[in-house]
Simulated assay, not measured.
Amino acid sequence: MVDTSPRHPLLQWTSLAPVVGAVVLALTYPGKGLPTVVVALVALVLGSAVLAAVHHAEVIAHRVGEPFGSLVLAVAVTVIEVGLILMLMSSGGDDASALARDTVFAAVMITTNLIVGIALVIASRRHGTAVFNPEGTGAALATVIMVTGLCLVIPAFTIGDPGPRYTGAQLAFAAVSSLVLYLVYVLTQTQGHRDFFLPVDREHGGLLEDDHAEPPTARATWTSLALLLVSLVAVVGLAKVASPAIESTVRAAGLPNSFVGVVIALVVLAPETLAAAKAAGRDRVQTSLNLAYGSAMASVGLTIPVLAVATLFVDAPLDLGLAPTHLVLLAMTVALGILTVVPGRALRLHGSLHIVLGLAFVFLSMAP
């Protein structure tokens, strides 16, 4: 007879991938001088760890419900981003001072354009229009605009310190302000106006609380939390291991070194992209937008304060001010985001506009 009994949860690939990732990390760290075959294996394991992180974050999100669930993955991705930036900054190099800016801005552009665009296209393709809550989404977009302006736009115009960077006092003000704004947003999302961030019921016009599926048990949730943490450590470490190969590939292709930041952002935001696409496929566009804008906000509002503190211990300045081309792309993103969010309904066209703008950023990062 063929054994058709369900596989034990700890023997499923989503449980094995984080463990395998941790083992591979222990065997290959710090990743210098690895053969091409080993680097390819690291990349494969890295992708598996990313997918496992998505799965376990979704398990936790289903248990805690919206909008708390959206915060889980946003914060998890930010942990990956901060850890990776700090490790690469500590290794030094001519471009270490601009790595944080390049990575954070890439995260903002990818989340607010590519992830938003993909979610809107998927939802509108299946249902004609993408429906969401303009109050909650508008509040999220406004917070993204504010923290991005404080941390990435204003430093390009200040004169207190040479280069596109803040003085110590200016950096402290921007970091504290961004952190406070992020915390106020989280309180608004989870307590003050939680209903503004719940998915909209297209058929009945109300709000959707949770999926009809039975939520996971407390034991399964804690297991997923532990495996999520292992996945995050594996992703950060393996990305660090693969980073020399990434940097050498970027140089060999004749691309600017700033493109490394875009590659890092694309890797760490893969879980957000997959989760947002899945939510949009279930017509929970608000969840997708919570993920996108929440991740953009966390990338700035949490990453910059942590890096500001890290500069006290890591001998590397922070060049935060954006170049003129990026300022124009950010202005276009703000204008397009406002026009998309205000009606509370979006067409496939809106999603396509966001995707093209996101791809324009990626292309111009390759060919400035």
Rank of each mutant, 00 (worst) to 15 (best):
residue 335 A to L: 12
residue 85 I to G: 05
residue 158 T to Q: 09
residue 216 P to C: 10
residue 280 A to G: 10
residue 315 D to W: 04
residue 273 T to R: 06
residue 351 G to H: 03
residue 138 G to C: 06
residue 147 V to Q: 08
residue 3 D to A: 08
residue 43 A to F: 15
residue 213 A to F: 04
residue 106 A to K: 10
residue 154 I to C: 09
residue 299 S to Y: 00
residue 131 V to Y: 02
residue 359 L to T: 06
residue 134 P to R: 04
residue 126 R to I: 02
residue 60 I to P: 07
residue 218 A to M: 12
residue 315 D to M: 01
residue 92 G to R: 10
residue 184 V to I: 14
residue 360 A to Q: 07
residue 168 G to C: 00
residue 77 V to Y: 03
residue 20 V to N: 04
residue 357 L to Y: 03
residue 313 F to G: 04
residue 217 T to A: 12
residue 66 E to P: 01
residue 160 G to L: 07
residue 40 A to N: 08
residue 316 A to G: 02
residue 179 L to R: 02
residue 309 V to L: 14
residue 160 G to D: 10
residue 340 T to I: 02
residue 197 F to S: 05
residue 44 L to E: 04
residue 68 F to K: 07
residue 106 A to Q: 12
residue 276 A to H: 05
residue 143 T to D: 04
residue 282 R to Q: 14
residue 250 V to M: 05
residue 69 G to D: 08
residue 309 V to H: 01
residue 69 G to L: 15
residue 138 G to H: 09
residue 152 L to S: 11
residue 88 L to V: 10
residue 246 I to P: 03
residue 239 A to Q: 11
residue 47 G to L: 15
residue 193 H to N: 14
residue 58 E to T: 08
residue 193 H to P: 05
residue 114 L to V: 14
residue 303 T to C: 08
residue 112 T to L: 05
residue 161 D to A: 12
residue 8 H to E: 04
residue 7 R to L: 14
residue 62 H to M: 10
residue 151 C to F: 09
residue 164 P to T: 06
residue 288 S to M: 03
residue 285 V to Q: 04
residue 327 L to K: 02
residue 276 A to F: 09
residue 55 H to W: 12
residue 18 P to F: 07
residue 134 P to D: 01
residue 167 T to D: 07
residue 118 I to Q: 05
residue 57 A to V: 06
residue 54 V to W: 07
residue 304 I to D: 03
residue 185 Y to P: 00
residue 110 I to A: 10
residue 345 R to W: 00
residue 88 L to F: 02
residue 222 W to V: 13
residue 262 V to T: 15
residue 41 L to F: 13
residue 250 V to Q: 03
residue 88 L to A: 15
residue 116 V to K: 04
residue 86 L to Q: 03
residue 206 G to I: 09
residue 237 G to N: 10
residue 40 A to L: 15
residue 123 A to L: 06
residue 254 G to Y: 00
residue 108 V to H: 06
residue 264 I to G: 04
residue 150 L to W: 14
residue 47 G to R: 04
residue 321 G to I: 00
residue 189 Q to N: 05
residue 53 A to V: 07
residue 37 V to G: 12
residue 142 A to E: 01
residue 223 T to F: 09
residue 240 K to N: 11
residue 106 A to W: 13
residue 240 K to Y: 15
residue 195 D to R: 13
residue 110 I to T: 13
residue 291 L to I: 13
residue 167 T to C: 06
residue 140 A to T: 01
residue 168 G to P: 06
residue 267 V to F: 14
residue 37 V to C: 03
residue 334 V to D: 03
residue 122 I to C: 03
